[in-house]
């Protein structure tokens, strides 16, 4: 995805990555999030991306320009490799204690408060109780995004 010069192809690969991630979510038994991932990301967001790419007709540009900037590219590549190495190094050194997978409850247990659960129901419960405030704010965030999009891309008015 990152190295593909074609924007549409990139977007397609991106969708593949997102779906693959959703698969990983499933592996982690987070079914609700996996579905959201596919629906929201792979579905809506990426479609939006593709739509814009098509709209703007910018898929042709070979913007990597490997020839011209080989050196700096190489340097950056090594930089990335360095970071990758660092990540491996640090994580392998630390070796996060890897706990066993616990059980996943079906829904919030009443006795013990909110138990760990990945069901949609527990999401709803927690969202509307503990995380009510962020939830409301997210609403405003979306409002802002909406207003923003409208303000920015509203058709230009001719000045009087």
């Amino acid at each position: 995805m990152v190295f593909n010069p074609n924007a549409v192809n990139s977007a397609m690969f991106m969708i593949v990555v997102l779906v693959a991630t959703a698969g990983l979510f499933v592996l982690l038994e987070a079914y609700f999030l996996a579905i959201l991932q596919v629906l929201v990301y792979a579905g809506a967001v990426m479609v939006l991306f593709l739509f814009i790419i098509m709209l703007l007709d910018v898929d042709k540009g070979d913007d990597l320009k490997l020839g011209r900037r080989k050196l700096s590219l190489l340097a950056r590549f090594f930089g990335v490799c360095l970071v990758a190495f660092l990540i491996f190094n640090s994580f392998s050194e630390v070796n996060l204690p890897s706990p066993d997978l616990g059980t996943v409850g079906d829904y919030p247990g009443i006795e013990s408060g909110i138990d760990f659960s990945t069901s949609a129901k527990s999401f709803g419960l927690i969202l509307f109780t503990k995380y009510m405030l962020p939830f409301q704010i997210i609403g405003f965030l979306l409002l802002i995004a909406m207003i923003g999009v409208i303000v920015i891309s509203k058709k230009q008015k001719t000045a009087e």
Partner: peptide
């Protein structure tokens, strides 16, 4: 972005 990148590498080095 490169600034960020370099900054991050430095951070990482410092943390490590």
């Amino acid at each position: 972005y490169l600034w960020f990148f370099v900054g991050l590498i430095l951070l990482w080095l410092y943390a490590a």
